[in-house]
Design a protein around this nucleic acid. Structure first.
Length: 117
DNA sequence: GCCATGGCTAGTA
DNA sequence: GCCATGGCTAGTA
C-alpha cells in the first residue's frame, strides 16, 4: 500500500473549522450576566465555527450543571426563546426572574437585551 | 461508512 | 443547509 497516494483532483474544498468543545461553550456561557441573553449562532461564531449553531444547541442539551451554566440565557437569533432541557416554560420563568421578559414566545426588546460574546 | 438526528440559521419565495 | 454524534449495516481480513 504505497505508490498509490490519491490527491484531490481539482479544487476540492473542505471547510477547515475549529471543532467546538463542550467546556469552551460552558466557559463562555458563564460570562453572560443575568438580565442578558446571547444566541446559539453568536456562541458558535465566538468559538470559531460560525455555522455550528446547531451543535451549540446539542451541547447545551447535555449541560451537566444548570446552576453554574445558565443555558436559559441562550436564545434563537430571531428572538424566539428556543429549546430547553427542562421545557421552554421553565426557561421563560428563569429569564423573567432575571428581568428578561417574553411576549408571544419572543424576547422583549431583544436587540438591547442581547450581548455579543 | 452511511444515515438520521438534534435546544438552529441566513436568505429565498 | 449546516456540523457533530451515535447507531447500524456492508463487506473486508
Amino acid at each position: 500500500m504505497h505508490g498509490l497516494i490519491q490527491m484531490p483532483a481539482n479544487g476540492i474544498k473542505r471547510n477547515i473549522v475549529r471543532r467546538i468543545k463542550d467546556e469552551d461553550v460552558y466557559d463562555l456561557l458563564r460570562k453572560i450576566p443575568p438580565g442578558k441573553v446571547s444566541t446559539y449562532g453568536d456562541l458558535a461564531k465566538a468559538l470559531g465555527n460560525p455555522s455550528a449553531s446547531r451543535v451549540i444547541g446539542s451541547i447545551l442539551a447535555k449541560n451537566p450543571n444548570p446552576i453554574k451554566v445558565p443555558c436559559h440565557r441562550v436564545v434563537m437569533s430571531d428572538g424566539k426563546v428556543g429549546g430547553y432541557a427542562y421545557g421552554t416554560a421553565r426557561k421563560k420563568d428563569l429569564l423573567e426572574k432575571e428581568g428578561v421578559f417574553v411576549t408571544n414566545g419572543i424576547i422583549n426588546d431583544f436587540e438591547n437585551v442581547r450581548v455579543h460574546p
